[in-house]
C-alpha cells in the first residue's frame, strides 16, 4: 500500500519488499546488508527527499532469534512518511551505521546499543548513553537477568 510517489522505492535496491498487512503507514522490508545504501538513496534522491530520521527502534523477537530494527523516515519537502524494517540475527547483532547520513542517528544508535547491544559498524562513538559505563549486559533484551531484579510473583 505504497502511495504513488513512493512506488519506485523497489527499484532503488534489490530485495526490497513492501509490507501490506498489519501496518498503518507505508512500510518496506529490506535485508540488513542493503539498509545503508537504500537509506542514502532515500535521503539524496530528490523525488523522495527523506531529510529526517524521526526515530529508530528495536524489537527483540526472542522466540524467532532475531532483532527487528525499525527506522521512521519523514520528508518535510513532500510531507510523506516511510517505515523501513530489517532484521538481524540475535547471536550476531551487527549492522552498518546510518550516522553519516543523518547525524541524529548517532545518538539513536547509541541508545539502542545501550539497551539492546546492537553493534553499529563504523559508528564514530559507540558508547553507552543512559546506563553507567561499567554496566554488564543489555537490560531491554527479553532474556536479560541480573541480581538486582525481582521476579513478579505468579
Amino acid at each position: 500500500m505504497l502511495p504513488e510517489r513512493l512506488q519506485s522505492i523497489c527499484e532503488l535496491e534489490d530485495d526490497v519488499t513492501v509490507l501490506e498487512e498489519g501496518v498503518d503507514k507505508p512500510t518496506v522490508v529490506v535485508p540488513c546488508e542493503h539498509v545503508a545504501s537504500l537509506m542514502a538513496a532515500l535521503k539524496h534522491d530528490a523525488s523522495f527527499a527523506f531529510l529526517l530520521l524521526l526515530d529508530h527502534t528495536v524489537t527483540d523477537r526472542v522466540d524467532d532469534g532475531h532483532f527487528e530494527l525499525v527506522y521512521q523516515l519523514y520528508s518535510p519537502v513532500h510531507n510523506h512518511h516511510l517505515m523501513v524494517m530489517t532484521t538481524i540475527p540475535r547471536d550476531e547483532p551487527v549492522i552498518q551505521t546510518l550516522s553519516h547520513i543523518w547525524a541524529v542517528a548517532e545518538f539513536q544508535e547509541r541508545e539502542i546499543y545501550d539497551m539492546f547491544g546492537v553493534v553499529y559498524r563504523n559508528h564514530p562513538d559507540l558508547r553507552r548513553l543512559f546506563l553507567e559505563d561499567d554496566w554488564v549486559g543489555f537490560p531491554l533484551r527479553k532474556d536479560y537477568e541480573d541480581d538486582f531484579m525481582l521476579e513478579r510473583p505468579k
Binding site: 537490560p139 541480573d146 538486582f148 531484579m149 525481582l150 521476579e151 513478579r152 510473583p153
Partner: peptide
C-alpha cells in the same frame, strides 16, 4: 516498577 525492573530503586 518494583518487579522486573533493572533500574528502579525500591
Amino acid at each position: 516498577f518494583i518487579y522486573n525492573s533493572y533500574s528502579t530503586v525500591r
